[in-house]
Amino acid sequence: MTTHDLPISVEHVTRRFGETVALDDVSLAVRPGEMVGLLGPNGAGKTTLLSLVEGLRQPDAGTVRVFGSDPRTAAARVRLGSTPQETGLPPSLRVAEVVDFVGRHYPDPVPTADLLDTFGLTDLARRQTGGMSGGQKRRLAVALAVVGRPDLVVLDEPTTGLDVDARHVLWDALRSFHASGATVVVTSHYLEEIQALAERVVVVDHGHVLADAPLEEILGRVAMRRVTLELGAGHAARLAGLGGVVQHQVEPSGRHVLMTPDADLVVRSLVGAEIPFRDLEVRTATLEEAFLALTRKEAA
């Protein structure tokens, strides 16, 4: 397959902002019809990567191609759909007007009425965007990404801050859009969102691709538990070697933190080894905590 057929081809891309290296020699190819989730904590480099694909910024080194063309040329972006970052819509324009305005940039846009219907915005057609709720704005923003019938859609945190119902409406719309043959790339720092949308997951942190694998595999790697406990002096060294522990840290308060994919195993080992722990707590690790554990493990 040549780069001409690839919706996204990123080769050895480095991008700095002053001293910060946002992307460090990143390569990524997205094939036609894929539904890819870019997963990583805030500041990982996801948004920078998308801004390169959208033609908003230039890489310092390496090449970015969208369907084989430089996305900084307008013609290359005719097959690309994206959403306004944040919920920044022109407040004085009406919903139908914004859809019409954006749609007119494409040769064969979805009729405004149809699009509003798909996204449940028909009743709001004449509302000025300044008078919409956050969730309604998000729906409109995602609708704008698909108004031009693009072959590739990139969405940056599409449902951040939405309630459960609104989130499901958007996910359904995106899944049916993907089912119609389009390639979809979604960034998120919510595992749940990636889980709902992606078939392939690319984990990014500190400007590096940490993992690039099918959803199931990634889920197994980031689904971690955080076990914390207090411990008498002299026993700390025994924790790191414990079965199932990926990472061992001591908090400033003196509590020991163990990251593990299998909390049951850790607790059984603790008891089995007769380690005198107190005040045990187990909870699901946040994605960020899981990432940190993964990153350190791989760096070690």
Partner: peptide, 12 residues
């Protein structure tokens, strides 16, 4: 406005 960079991603 954040809408301004968005307009730059349109094919124009």
């Amino acid at each position: 406005q954040p809408f301004d960079p968005y307009l730059r991603t349109l094919p124009a």
